[in-house]
Amino acid sequence: MKKENDNFTFYRPDTTTQREIPVAGGAVRAGFPSPADDFLELPLDLNRELVRNPASTFFVRVAGESMTGDGIGDGDLLVVDRSTEPHDGCIAICCLDGEFTVKRLKLEPDGVWLLPSNPAYKPIRATKSNDFRIWGVVRHVIKSFK
C-alpha cells in the first residue's frame, strides 16, 4: 500500500508473515567464498503456499468417511478459502439444513447435487425446499500420519 506526496512515494511494509532471510556471504574471511552465495533464495513458506488469502481462509476438521475417494478422511484438516468462487465440480463446505457438510458440488440450474466420493454413501440433492448455502471452497486437505 502506498501514499504519495509531491516528492516522495512511501511504501508500507507488509509485516503479516514471518520469513527467515538468509544473509549473503556470512563473515568475510580470507578464504574461498561460498559458491552458493550467488544462488541464495528464500526458504519455502507453507503458509504462503496453502493460504493465498489469510483473511478469508479458515481451517476445519473432518468427521466421517463419505469423501475418502477424494482423499479426505476422518480427522483430516481442510484449508477452506471463502474468497474462491464456487464452481461446478469443486469440493466445498456447505450448510445443509443447519449442518456443516463437505461434498463435491454439481451445480444445476434448479438445484445442487452434493456428491460423496465413497460408494457406501448416496448423493444428496439440495433444492429450494432445503436451507442450503455454500460456506467456502476447500483448497487443500492436510493429513497427518502418526
Partner: peptide
Amino acid sequence: RYTTEWDELPVVKAE
C-alpha cells in the same frame, strides 16, 4: 475459539 485454537476448529460432517 474456532479460528485461534487447533483443538477447537469447526467440524464438518462427511456422512
